[in-house]
Simulated assay, not measured.
Amino acid sequence: MARRPRERKARGASVVGARFEVTVGPVAHGGHCVARVAEAGNRVVFVRHALPGEQVVVEVTEGTEGDGFWRGDAVEVRTPSPDRVPAPCPYAGPELCGGCDFQHVALPAQRDLKAAVVREQLVRLGGLAEDDPLVAGLVVEAVDGDQEGLRWRTRMRYVGLPGGAQGLHVHRSSEVVEIDDCRIAHPRALEVVEGVRDDGPTAPVVEQVAAQGTEREFAVDADGFWQVHPGAPGVLVGTVLELLGPRPGEAVLDLYAGVGVFAAFLADRVGERGRVVAVEGDLAACGHARGNLVGLPQARVAQGSVDRVLRESYDEPFDLVVLDPPREGARRKVVEQVVDRAPRAVAYVACDPAALARDVATFADLGYRLSALRAFDLFPMTHHVECVALLTKTGVDLR
Score class of each variant (00 low, 15 high):
152 W>E: 06
140 V>E: 12
125 L>T: 04
217 E>F: 12
191 E>F: 02
116 A>T: 14
220 V>W: 01
231 G>W: 09
107 L>D: 05
181 D>V: 00
212 Q>K: 12
139 V>R: 15
169 H>W: 04
200 G>Q: 07
210 A>S: 15
153 R>H: 07
217 E>H: 14
197 R>A: 15
219 A>L: 13
156 M>N: 08
142 A>G: 15
137 G>T: 11
122 L>F: 05
152 W>G: 11
247 R>A: 09
228 V>I: 14
144 D>E: 15
178 E>D: 08
126 G>C: 10
120 E>N: 13
164 G>E: 10
181 D>W: 02
161 L>V: 11
167 G>T: 03
201 P>H: 07
238 G>L: 05
166 Q>V: 06
103 Q>W: 09
125 L>Y: 09
125 L>W: 05
132 D>V: 09
204 P>T: 01
125 L>D: 04
128 L>F: 09
169 H>Y: 13
128 L>N: 02
164 G>N: 10
232 A>L: 07
117 V>R: 10
206 V>I: 10
105 V>R: 05
116 A>I: 12
171 H>E: 12
154 T>M: 13
105 V>N: 08
103 Q>A: 14
207 E>K: 08
167 G>Y: 01
243 L>Y: 05
223 D>I: 12
169 H>D: 00
111 R>A: 01
223 D>R: 15
163 G>Y: 10
245 G>R: 15
171 H>F: 14
235 V>Q: 08
240 V>D: 02
161 L>P: 09
216 R>N: 03
237 V>L: 08
150 L>H: 07
243 L>E: 03
126 G>S: 12
130 E>F: 02
200 G>D: 07
180 D>L: 00
230 P>H: 13
142 A>D: 15
231 G>M: 11
109 A>T: 04
107 L>P: 02
139 V>C: 12
194 E>P: 04
114 K>H: 10
218 F>H: 08
235 V>C: 08
196 V>T: 02
111 R>Q: 03
198 D>R: 14
168 L>I: 11
183 R>Q: 11
136 A>T: 07
209 V>W: 06
215 E>R: 15
245 G>I: 06
237 V>C: 10
224 G>Y: 01
228 V>Y: 06
189 A>P: 09
124 R>W: 00
129 A>T: 12
164 G>S: 12
228 V>C: 05
134 L>V: 10
146 D>C: 11
111 R>H: 04
166 Q>K: 15
173 S>G: 09
196 V>K: 06
108 P>A: 07
166 Q>W: 12
184 I>E: 00
199 D>S: 09
207 E>F: 00
173 S>E: 05
119 R>M: 11
152 W>L: 10
206 V>C: 04
110 Q>N: 13
132 D>Y: 07
102 F>L: 15
119 R>Q: 14
244 L>P: 01
231 G>P: 06
118 V>F: 10
202 T>L: 11
170 V>Y: 00
179 I>Q: 00
128 L>D: 01
210 A>L: 08
168 L>M: 15
228 V>S: 07
147 Q>S: 14
150 L>Q: 14
244 L>R: 02
151 R>Y: 14
122 L>A: 06
232 A>M: 06
198 D>A: 06
225 F>E: 01
124 R>T: 01
240 V>F: 04
217 E>N: 13
138 L>C: 13
215 E>G: 07
189 A>G: 05
247 R>S: 06
149 G>M: 10
